[in-house]
């Protein structure tokens, strides 16, 4: 294990003295940013899709909207996220003549991807709310949109917080592929440190530990959120 001590020493050297920690912090920040912003976009768009899908289909517009949503969800759930990233960054955006930084492309693609998953989660959440809630709102003269926003979706969200938490954790893990389009995440940082002296054992070990801690913290936050929501159920 004397060997390992030396490896640790070398890692420390690059990490501190060659400014490796700055890269790690940037990578960490980017990872968290892509996951958080991606989930936020995912919840926004996903909720919209879910509402379109549970809406009563009364005319051609609502029917074709639903078709569009089904296609969207199928597309984003049916292809690997790496492929989506590559296609967005190297095919779609250049074809449209749009030039935006890799990090932002990642946020958008992760947001769009997560929207597909969140829409399914949200849809089952909405369907799990007693239809009587919607009926009561409508019977009072509130329109569909208002009843959905003020009554149904808040109850749906409460039911799906644990599942949404899992989606968040998946997102954190999946961000580890963003270096495919050149975004600087944890992998890029530790790869840099390792490449400095062709010594990858310790850097990747530390990277693994950081992911474990990251996911554990996320799980803790979700659990806390769940608990506080449950408490509000018992309020008197």
């Amino acid at each position: 294990m004397g060997n390992f001590d030396k490896k640790l020493e070398r890692f420390w050297e690059v990490f501190i003295e060659h400014g490796g920690y700055v890269k790690v912090l940037t990578g960490l920040q980017n990872t968290v940013w892509i996951a958080v912003a991606g989930l936020a976009i995912g919840i926004l768009i996903g909720t919209l899709i879910a509402v379109v899908r549970v809406m009563p289909k009364t005319n051609r517009l609502t029917k074709s909207l639903e078709g569009l949503c089904v296609f969207y969800v199928g597309l984003f759930r049916g292809t690997p996220i790496v492929v989506q990233l590559l296609v967005a960054y190297y095919v779609a955006l250049p074809l449209m003549g749009i030039n935006i930084p890799a990090l932002q492309v990642c946020v958008i693609v992760f947001g769009l991807n997560s929207a597909a998953y969140v829409s399914e989660i949200m849809r089952s959440g909405i369907l799990s709310v007693d239809p009587g809630q919607m009926e009561a709102g409508r019977a009072l003269g509130l329109n569909y949109r208002v009843t959905m926003m003020k009554i149904v979706i808040p109850q749906a969200v409460k039911n799906i917080v644990p599942t949404l938490g899992n989606e968040f954790i998946s997102l954190i893990k999946e961000t580890s592929v963003v270096s495919f389009v050149g975004a600087a995440d944890l992998y890029v940082a530790f790869n840099y440190i390792g490449s400095n002296n062709y010594e990858f054992m310790v850097p990747y070990l530390v990277m693994a530990l950081i992911y474990i801690v990251l996911v554990a913290v996320a799980a803790l936050i979700v659990r806390q959120l769940e608990r506080s929501l449950r408490k509000s159920d018992r309020r008197h």
């Binding site: 007693d130 009587g132 809630q133 009561a136 019977a139 003269g141 329109n143 003020k150």
Partner: peptide, 28 residues
């Protein structure tokens, strides 16, 4: 919606809004 405002409806299973307090249910 305008019409429904003039006709109150009461259901077998009450259908109070579960995410609102009693006062909010009435005021909403």
């Amino acid at each position: 919606d305008e019409h429904r405002r003039q006709m109150g409806m009461v259901f077998q299973h009450f259908n109070l809004f579960n995410n609102k307090t009693v006062l909010e249910n009435i005021m909403l």
